[in-house]
């Protein structure tokens, strides 16, 4: 069965949701999400350590979307906003869960999969070394991305990155990334 965006989003938005969004991932949207979530975490008096980790994860995961999502997706029948992505934040079994979703060109799947598998295979100390190596040796892209976002998320949460690629059509997969904090 091929991927159905509507069902996917509905499924995601079922739990104890703090925020669910689908649409253009813009700089303003990132501001709004951060502000909204910060306020909600403040309202429930979440401890500052957890709050900061969630905030960091949100910044990195949304800015990853911002930097990497294609403006337009050719051959996708859905009526998508430009730079379309999904962000959902919920609480599940006592942990916070940040999920992002976006369409990814088939040609990029292998690279992305290998990168995440590599990160997931590393210990805490190895992640630190990897972070420092990339920090010190790789240049920022023209868009300002540093290739450090996922490493940073894995380091700060101490949890594995959970991901799935759902086939959409010949050109696109839908990439789901779940981060638990």
């Amino acid at each position: 069965m091929s991927f159905n965006l509507k069902d996917y989003y509905q499924d995601l938005s079922k739990g104890d949701v703090l925020l669910a969004y689908k649409g253009s991932i813009t700089s303003e949207l990132i501001n709004d999400v951060l502000e909204g979530v910060e306020k909600k975490l403040d309202d429930v008096h979440e401890e500052s350590k957890t709050r900061k980790k969630i905030y960091n994860v949100l910044v990195e995961s949304m800015q990853n979307l911002f930097h990497h999502i294609e403006e337009y997706h050719e051959g996708i029948s859905e009526d998508l906003d430009p730079k379309f992505g999904v962000v959902v934040i919920e609480k599940e079994n006592g942990l916070y869960k940040v999920t992002t979703g976006n369409f990814v060109n088939s040609t990029k799947i292998k690279f992305l999969k290998e990168k995440i598998d590599k990160i997931n295979s590393l210990t805490k100390d190895e992640l630190k070394d990897m972070y420092k190596f990339i920090l010190n040796h790789q240049k920022l892209s023209a868009k300002g991305g540093g290739g450090l976002g996922l490493v940073d998320i894995a380091r700060k949460t101490g949890n594995k990155l959970e991901y799935a690629f759902y086939n959409y059509n010949n050109n696109y997969y839908f990439f789901n990334l779940t981060i638990r904090i």
């Binding site: 910044v59 920090l135 450090l148």
Partner: peptide
């Protein structure tokens, strides 16, 4: 807070 994009610039 600082993001990973800033981390390189801070370096």
């Amino acid at each position: 807070y600082f993001n990973t994009s800033s981390s390189k610039c801070i370096l």
